[in-house]
Design a protein around this nucleic acid. Structure first.
Lengths: 363, 363
DNA sequence: ATGAAAGCGCTAACAC
DNA sequence: GTGTTAGCGCTTTCAT
């Protein structure tokens, strides 16, 4: 297989190569059904499989797209993003070249070059967590940024609506009756996601007429250990301003809050409510009780990027960043604050998803 | 970029296309350095980037490889496997086509066809957990199976050495002095990995002269919840045969054992030792105490498969399945059994990795 | 309704 | 030491 050429099919069918080409490509043509059938069975017979490379050379289109990412391996989210991109590619009969640069700039440069040499029809530049980064040299103007955006602008890009996600998360808390709500932040080099989620937190407090206490904002390592330490500090606050609810930068930190609570004999959600972020697989849903959190729309972002890259999306104008909504996933870690028991109705066991409001394109 | 052809470079440098081709490909030839330099700068000048598609058509080699997998998204292990394959591909200047079939046989068939049409130099057929499966129709004879093997044989393949991994895991327990050791198995449709790990468990017990009690083998759902239920059943056993140590099919189930233990006020590892399997990211290392477990060598398997596919490995004969060693990762969940305290030295806090013995090629 | 032939951009055998 | 040229396998215009 692969060794048989179009001329072999032509010979077998007793027609010319152009006829074979016409029927193989279902070209609108007045070739009678009888001939078409003869060609098709001849092709089947000899095991003909058209060469995409020859076709690509001739048509100047390869039906391939290159996806360059910094880290495919080290994040648990990569998969769903790739799956989204890959699904769209497949739906449109395109094949996906995948390159993982590991964050190495030289490898990245080579990858862009190699993909260019392969004459891919489109390129996607993906980061494995929401970031703002400089534009790699050599990247074609019509490339699409996925889960990141270029500091200088000039490209289409899609990122999570972190601010709106943070707002929705904290709303779930204010709506349950909480007034003292902490934000457990990351202390790592200011990822854009962290500040956006913080802004959302502040907005939701403002909406509820709550004046945020500076003591409610504590930063720690992005790990269960970090979350635990932060929670302990918060739980040591004087009772008047002691938080009854925690909004965490991510789910891993939220698990640390669980540990701190258990160490003090506090029950979640009876004594303490907690909301995470990421809806991380094997983490959020598997806590006890299952963690209410905000999902990152990786699959949908992957789809969006590929649709934009393939020119399927009309709204994919240059220099526009699309914010993809982050739905809150309600599980069992949020209840009314301790003092309010009985006054509020509990919002438990509704394992459903509530869409946060936004999916906007700005700039 | 991409619009300029080799003839443009030739014209710019005042030489023929063959000269350009020769220098671009660093062909062993007696072209003087002066000319080479002139050609190179002309190429640079006009922004020439050789077309891989034209070259592929001419040379009949594409320097691409196709990787087909059933599930890229839904498993936390996919990443490292892809990274291994991708790294080797890059080291040898190959590009990787990635196709995720989602387990759909029609998509799989189309993918094999499309990859064949692209004239990839090699194909890798990957599963996201160790399985035995039927050979997809149309798969080239020299394809390599990754983390799975064909029921019918006839292909090169690489899988984890689950049996040896299970043996090493249980050895860590017998060496700590345990005599009552349970195996918490999965009750899902008999994955090959589960039975191999069970065999390893039995071997390690035999080595230590321990007669396994049938009550020590309990199967449950592959989840924290399943692990918890299994552990509770085991902890209810009469004291004479009550296990002091648990070997779990995977890390998620091990976290369930932690919960069961905590619910009974049992301390790990003082009252109970536990060993998992998978070394799952964000799970094993982040337990409290960190979980001793057996690592699945996904990165190395990915590398091996690509090396075999590219013909770099001499030993890559057909019909051979390579078993890749699964190192035990010692963390803090294993100690001596309660009765032995003081008699044994504790094996804690040695966060190192011990290689299990095997990396064999059988059949 | 079908066939002949040019040419996509490159490599490599062969000429000079 | 460098140039000419024949394809690689296909699509597509133009003839017939």
């Amino acid at each position: 297989m692969g060794r048989v050429r179009i001329s072999d099919v032509a010979a077998a069918a007793g027609v010319s190569v152009s006829t074979v080409s016409l029927v193989m490509n279902d070209v609108e043509s007045r070739i009678p059904e009888a001939t078409r059938e003869r060609v098709r069975s001849a092709a089947e017979q000899v095991g003909y499989q058209p060469s995409s490379v020859a076709r690509s050379l001739r048509t100047q289109r390869t039906r391939t797209v290159g996806l360059i990412s910094d880290q495919i391996a080290t994040t648990p989210f990569a998969g769903r993003m790739l799956a989204g991109a890959q699904d769209v590619a497949r739906e449109h009969s395109h094949l996906l070249f995948l390159v993982d640069t590991g964050g190495d700039v030289d490898i990245e440069r080579d990858a862009i070059r190699a993909l260019g040499a392969q004459r891919v029809d489109a390129m996607i530049y993906a980061a494995m967590w929401h970031r703002v980064l400089s534009t790699p040299a050599g990247l074609p103007d019509d490339a699409v940024f996925l889960d990141c955006r270029p500091a200088a602008g000039g490209y289409r890009s899609v990122v999570p609506a972190d601010r709106e996600g943070g707002r929705a998360a904290v709303r779930a808390l204010t709506e349950a009756g909480h007034r003292c709500i902490a934000y457990i932040d990351t202390n790592e080099d200011a990822p854009i996601a962290a500040s956006l989620r913080h802004e959302g937190y502040l907005e939701a407090l403002a909406e509820a007429g709550i004046e945020p206490d500076p003591a409610w904002h504590v930063a720690a390592q992005t790990s269960p250990q970090g979350g635990r330490i932060a929670a302990e500090r918060l739980l040591d606050l004087p009772e008047a301003i002691r938080p009854t609810a925690f909004f965490c930068f991510n789910d891993r930190m939220a698990t640390g809050v669980y540990r701190a609570a258990h160490a003090r004999g506090l029950d979640i959600p009876r004594d303490l409510s907690v909301v995470g972020f990421d809806d991380q697989q094997f983490v959020a849903a598997e806590q006890d009780p299952p963690l209410t959190t905000v999902a990152l729309p990786h699959y949908e972002m992957g789809r969006w990027a590929m649709e934009a890259a393939l020119g399927i999306r009309a709204e994919g104008e240059k220099d526009a960043v699309h914010h993809m909504e982050c739905p809150v996933v309600r599980r069992d870690s949020v209840g009314p604050p301790p003092a309010h028991v009985g006054k509020q109705n509990r919002r438990r066991a509704s394992h459903t998803t509530e869409r946060s409001r936004t999916a906007t394109t700005d700039r």
